[in-house]
């Protein structure tokens, strides 16, 4: 097991009233899995993500990463957790610090005290993992949004994390940039890195092993994409949006077309429609 939540509640303290952002969540994220987290704005997704690497620690309950609690007093233990669970956020422009890409990537490992020679290797690995080797000595300013997010992912990869958390990292990108970032996430997952993808785009959730839906701080749905998409009533209740092929499949089933439960994308849907015409 990699990340485990046991009865976790998190409350942001406030002057007048505090906000309970995560409510009694129990959840286990399996090693090597690809988990998608969906839910309306304000449902607690980012808070959940920050609880995974000790940026926040539970008000009650316990979060463990590889068996180690994030509620530790030990700086070095917390540091180990942060380098195991890498986070990439939404805005590609707020995440760059250095003026040369290679320095941006070196920043994390330098802080970890990784020896100089090895840092060079890590930079090379991280940039090739996101397909940005040729940009090593360039500045990040001129990159497209998708490229900037890939650099942000590379900066995390240089820490050799076991888990990559992408908190709406595709939200501000155009379709091409989104596709680039998703392709990188899938490739890393294929290499054994656990991926937690927070997104509003249900087409992205289609690829996950598992979809977790949050509402008002609680986990309200948890299952495979097919299981989640099947429940139209809850999809509406939690203001999610079905991927278009799944929506069309459901509408056609209502009209009596024998479309199978599991549809993956436009081609498969067209195939099924043809068989029923």
């Amino acid at each position: 097991m990699s990340v485990r939540f046991e009865n976790v509640t998190y409350e942001y303290p406030g002057e007048e009233k505090s906000v309970v952002a995560v409510k009694n969540v129990s959840l286990e994220i399996a090693d090597g899995s690809f988990v998608c987290v969906c839910g309306e704005n304000g449902s607690g997704k980012s808070t959940l993500a920050k609880l995974m690497n000790g940026l926040l620690t539970p008000s009650s309950g316990i979060v463990t990463v590889d068996g180690e609690t994030t509620s530790t007093e030990s700086e070095s233990a917390l540091f180990a957790i942060r380098s195991k669970v890498g986070m990439v956020f939404q805005n590609p422009d707020n995440q760059m610090i250095a003026s040369i890409i290679e320095d941006e990537i070196a920043f994390g490992p330098e802080n970890l005290g990784v020896p100089r020679e090895e840092i060079g290797e890590r930079i090379a690995y991280a940039l090739s993992a996101v397909g940005m080797e040729e940009h090593r000595h360039h500045t990040p300013y001129k990159l497209s949004g998708g490229q900037k997010q890939r650099i942000a992912i590379a900066a995390v990869l240089a820490m050799r994390p076991k888990i990559l958390v992408l908190d709406e990292s595709t939200a501000m990108l155009d379709p091409k940039g989104r596709a680039e970032v998703l392709a990188v996430a899938e490739e890393l997952n294929a290499q054994g890195i656990t991926v937690v993808l927070i997104t509003h785009f249900m087409e992205e959730a289609v690829r996950a092993d598992r979809v977790v839906v949050m509402s008002e701080g609680a986990v309200v749905m948890d299952g495979t994409p097919e299981e989640i998409f099947r429940d139209r009533e809850k999809i509406n209740r939690y203001h999610l949006e079905l991927p278009v092929p799944d929506y069309l499949a459901a509408e056609l089933r209502k009209e009596g077309f024998p479309i199978p439960e599991k549809i993956f994308g436009e081609e498969e849907l067209a195939e099924a429609i043809c068989r029923s015409l």
């Binding site: 991927p243 278009v244 092929p245 929506y247 069309l248 509408e251 056609l252 009209e255 436009e266 081609e267 849907l269 067209a270 195939e271 429609i273 043809c274 015409l277």
Partner: peptide, 28 residues
């Protein structure tokens, strides 16, 4: 859009349309 991709995949399988659909309800 997804609807058009589905329609194109159908056309390539020999299905013909009166009105090429671009909206979900048009395709259905």
């Amino acid at each position: 859009p997804s609807v058009v991709k589905v329609a194109k995949a159908l056309i390539s399988r020999g299905v013909s349309f009166h009105n090429l659909p671009v909206k979900k309800e048009e395709l259905v």
